[in-house]
Design a protein around this nucleic acid. Sequence first.
DNA 1: ATGAAAGCGCTAACAG
DNA 2: CTGTTAGCGCTTTCAT
Lengths: 340, 340
Amino acid sequence: MTTGALPRRVTARDVARRVGCSVATVSLVVNGKGEGRVASSTQQLIWEAVADLGYRLNQTASALARGRSSTIGFVCPDPTNPFFSMVLEGLSGALDDELSLTLLMPNQGSDYDLGTLQRALAGDFAGLIIATPGRHLMDGFVPTCPTLLLDAAEAHPRIPGIDLDVVGAAGQLADHLAGLGHRAVGYVGVSRDKASLQTRRQALASSLERLGSAVVADLELDVLTLSSARDAFSTAWPAWDAAGVTAVVCGDELHAYGVLQAARTLGIDVPGRLSLVGFNDLPYSELVQPRLTSVNLSALDLGAAAGAALQEYLITGEPPATTMLPTRLVVRESTARASR
Amino acid sequence: MTTGALPRRVTARDVARRVGCSVATVSLVVNGKGEGRVASSTQQLIWEAVADLGYRLNQTASALARGRSSTIGFVCPDPTNPFFSMVLEGLSGALDDELSLTLLMPNQGSDYDLGTLQRALAGDFAGLIIATPGRHLMDGFVPTCPTLLLDAAEAHPRIPGIDLDVVGAAGQLADHLAGLGHRAVGYVGVSRDKASLQTRRQALASSLERLGSAVVADLELDVLTLSSARDAFSTAWPAWDAAGVTAVVCGDELHAYGVLQAARTLGIDVPGRLSLVGFNDLPYSELVQPRLTSVNLSALDLGAAAGAALQEYLITGEPPATTMLPTRLVVRESTARASR
DNA sequence: ATGAAAGCGCTAACAG
DNA sequence: CTGTTAGCGCTTTCAT
């Protein structure tokens, strides 16, 4: 039973020695810069030696010599949240093979903080993508490498980003609800101090008001779990009922599921008595009845767009213009004509 | 509007020059090895200069000089799948601050392959964690750094791992079902060529047989989506019904949700007519009625255990013994006494 | 207590 | 076409 002391790493020197050439030549060939500069016979020999010896380029040394790393950092609150895992998926799909992806998440707690950001700065990244930062988190931020902000309209004046058209989405949603005759809507927000989350509430409220409706009741939850929404809504419902609320909008769809659950328990008919909508189109929609009307924030596209933009940035050196991704309202069974 | 050409990086040399000491001293202090070796006045000065200049250790150079990197690689099929995202969460929580985590996932397709593994080998990782590899993927694998296999009993004779007690879980499940009088059960499998998945089916079958019951019908699905299970089950049901199936077990709970949906459409009462169970306890349980009985594979614990074990491995140099994590059957409303 | 020096393994001019 | 040279920024003896 050999306990596995791993063999010393094979270096370019070993390959060079074996072939009888210099390290520089090995470097050229291995990096695919050999064509037209190194005799093809030599290339042959080098590749053979590489295979025989099991040589692999030392990325660390390569990065150091070259002066830039080839890994990009992705900062996000919680990979367990479908929204972020989908952004991640989109991002990873959009990145070139040579780029690797390291994940920076909070050490504890459900959202990342300055500490996480510090770690991101400390790592040697070719580029950085920061997803949905808290409102003031970026205030004193000085980028040390090409950096992109996701879903954080104006969190930082100098850093380009990819945004979701939350305002447009809120407008669509307001149209939809007002069109169904909803005059009084309740809003379930997330207390996390994020620009994107706050915009959702504000944009909805002002769009509604323009149409003669209004947000007349609020709930603000600390944690992004189904049960927190369920419990809070159960408690709040009598007052909301009295206030004439006929529709509830949740800043995050996960909360909408909680509200739905509470509604079932309380015997509130959705959508007969109460219409229900959430932002974020989580992959639960087929699971639950009635299926929820929701604002699709297309996390996958967001990730993909970020990947593409960052690569552009890395290649050209020019920061991309901040872009806005469209969102769309997906109408399902949880919204209907206002009950009164 | 200054387009952001980033300033040249501050090096230890800059700090040394500012303080009037040598780079070596800076290195010592910055790495916390200064106590008792560097005058505290000098340390003071160095820290001040570090702060003033905004010096950050170049991880790449450090790793090169030191001969080992401080990032660990995590290879997994799909971060979108709650099972893996929870493993990831557990892992990230268990890792020391100094260790960073890079993610290796398939470039395309839903499961990773040799290419992904190559990339993992090519990166310079301090350690590697490979989650639920396909059955023969590890066959010719030669580790280049401390490596751990997750949920892959015996995929490789020499590589230690953390396993889930799938056999024990299958036993509990068989007891539960047989105890409720189920004699004929249908199994919905996942075609992915994974040791863990195949073990689930086999262990269940043999446990059931020991109790006088049996798996009498099979479905094997290519993709891990709810809809694939829904459609396949809809088609298969008449035959399964005829075969006297009173319970369905799904190798992955996501499929169980699909079966549940099909059952609703077909008017099959769950659990009155048909009991339903899945492996993996996805975070959907509160959403759907009836809530599914399932085998909790504790992804979070798996990730945490892996993180702890790998760190041990890195520090001691000794490969940890392969360990087995307990699993447990969580009985909810989707299983009941056999209908006949 | 501190500095000089020799690398870590690779890349990028620059000579020939 | 290929080798020599000079680093990349840091760590680590080993003198002083």
